[in-house]
Amino acid sequence: MLKHTGRYFREWTTSVVSIKRFFSDKRAGGFISDLHELRANKGKLSEASDFPCSAKSAALMPSVKGVSLSNKDITLPDELYGFVSLVLLSFRQLGWKMNNHYREPFAQEYSGHANVKIYDVSVYSYILLRIIPGWIKRNLHRKIDKKDHDNFICYFGSFSEQQRVLKLHNQLVGHAFLVDARGRVRWRAHAVPTDREVKAMIRSTRHLVAEL
């Protein structure tokens, strides 16, 4: 009896420590830290650059293996090679809504362009969400326009390594990345974009298309 009690206590203690880390560890995207940042400055730490960074200084887009809403296995950056792509990443519905402010003007400018793509990546990294992928995808099917299902990716699993490479500081906001034809992240922004950032995104895409 005492043996089992000790084991249960250790498991309970481990769970409590994990929960505390989830809410307070900024390096792991702590929810409370992210929330404070959102309240302080709407999650916007800085504005994006006016032009894409040089190819030499750009980081490669990390591997993201997911399933589209049309049930196709998709791996980034493999699908991005040969194209200029806007990759919109979100962990929460709030972030997804923020990303609409990038998606809509971008689609208006480049819809139908043979060399330009848009991908939405919705990340579900918490264990409770990983065990209900079917319910999540059915819910998204109702929210996302059918024409966008092929390019809407659901990712289930740990995202810590990708988060480190992409230097994502806040999981509550949306993140936008312009990726060139070789899979390099050349421009980035986060949270709700300013008018200047939207213009910079369109301009930067034009520059990257010219490199093709």
Rank of each mutant, 00 (worst) to 15 (best):
L94E: 14
V87A: 02
K147E: 10
M98V: 12
Y110G: 00
Q93K: 04
K137Y: 01
Q93F: 04
V123S: 13
Q108R: 02
Y124H: 07
L140C: 14
V123L: 15
D148T: 06
E109A: 06
S111W: 01
H101Y: 04
P105H: 01
R103T: 15
L89H: 02
Q93S: 11
Y110C: 00
L128M: 13
Q93Y: 04
D148K: 01
H113G: 09
R103A: 15
F83T: 11
A107F: 08
I136R: 03
E104A: 03
L140Y: 09
G82A: 10
D148G: 02
R138Q: 13
A114Q: 07
I144W: 00
L94M: 12
P105G: 05
V123K: 10
F83S: 09
R138K: 10
I131T: 11
S125D: 12
L88H: 05
R130Q: 07
L88Y: 05
L128K: 06
Y124L: 03
P133Y: 04
D145A: 08
R138V: 12
L94S: 14
H141G: 12
R92F: 04
L86S: 12
N99I: 05
V116D: 14
L89S: 09
Q93L: 05
G112K: 07
S122D: 15
Y102I: 07
D145F: 00
K147N: 06
L140A: 15
E104I: 02
H113P: 04
V87W: 00
Y126E: 12
Y110T: 02
F106I: 11
A107R: 10
I132Q: 09
L128V: 14
V123D: 15
H141T: 13
N139P: 15
N139G: 15
L88D: 12
L129Q: 13
F91D: 10
P133E: 13
K147I: 05
Y126G: 04
N100L: 08
V84P: 02
S90Q: 10
I132D: 11
H113A: 10
P133W: 02
A114I: 07
